[in-house]
Design a protein around this nucleic acid. Sequence first.
DNA 1: GTGCTTGCAAAGAATTTGCATAATT
DNA 2: AATTATGCAAATTCTTTGCAAGCAC
Lengths: 139, 139
Amino acid sequence: MVTDSLDARVDEILKNLGHRATGPRRKVARLLASKRGAFSAESINEELPGVGRATVYRTIRLLAEAGVLCRALLPDGSPRYSIDHSWHHHHLICSSCETVEEFRSSELERLLCELSDEIPGRVLGHQVDFYLTCPDCLQ
Amino acid sequence: MVTDSLDARVDEILKNLGHRATGPRRKVARLLASKRGAFSAESINEELPGVGRATVYRTIRLLAEAGVLCRALLPDGSPRYSIDHSWHHHHLICSSCETVEEFRSSELERLLCELSDEIPGRVLGHQVDFYLTCPDCLQ
DNA sequence: GTGCTTGCAAAGAATTTGCATAATT
DNA sequence: AATTATGCAAATTCTTTGCAAGCAC
């Protein structure tokens, strides 16, 4: 599982990116690895009183840019991060509890690819989000 | 065109929503109607020194909730508004100049509908964004 | 040792809220 | 007259930055 390897491979990941493996970064990575779903940067900050806010935000950005984390936007635009399982995926976002789930569809991917060819300009990527009331929130 | 009617029909739109047709709201609507593409709330605020910031933000939110405006999120999560031409559409967002264009595909819509049925929970809506470098920014 | 990192606090950016005043119906 | 709306400033929220002191390599 990627969740395990994040914690175990932080040092390697960081060095490959030309960054140093430090204590605070390992602490952040260890906490992220323990997270199931999506989380906000602030929530990580609150759970790590021993690490400065700036370091938490910087590390999360670092890992997001490295592709270790992926970012989803809630309907109001606020970002949530989650471990990127590296297969390309989209998001199912519950408007009620703000839970973010992953979603994949090869058929959708194929169509998006086709459409990309028809779009003027150079398509860099796409993002598909479904906003919903999740089964839990439906009671 | 919807662009024309927004300016002309603000009073009607507001009253249908149970709100009052006021001078500041008309000023905001008139400016919005003159906009071609997407804009930020702040940019509208800056262009209307005679109207308070709070009123600008409140009016934009009012019109967005009424479906007169639609909101797109830039890759960093910051919102951009544009006149909603009421046909369901998606967005082509230039990562370089931040221009937002509309995009429609009946084939995409059909597939998203099908997928919605397979998704657990009650799907409320979806959002598809293509991030790209627009023809202008490609030089 | 040299240079990247950290943590703190301050700075920012964007948006919302409280409240007395003003305008609409 | 009864409310709703406005505008200003202050408050919020989330995130970034400056910089001296501290680590990693």
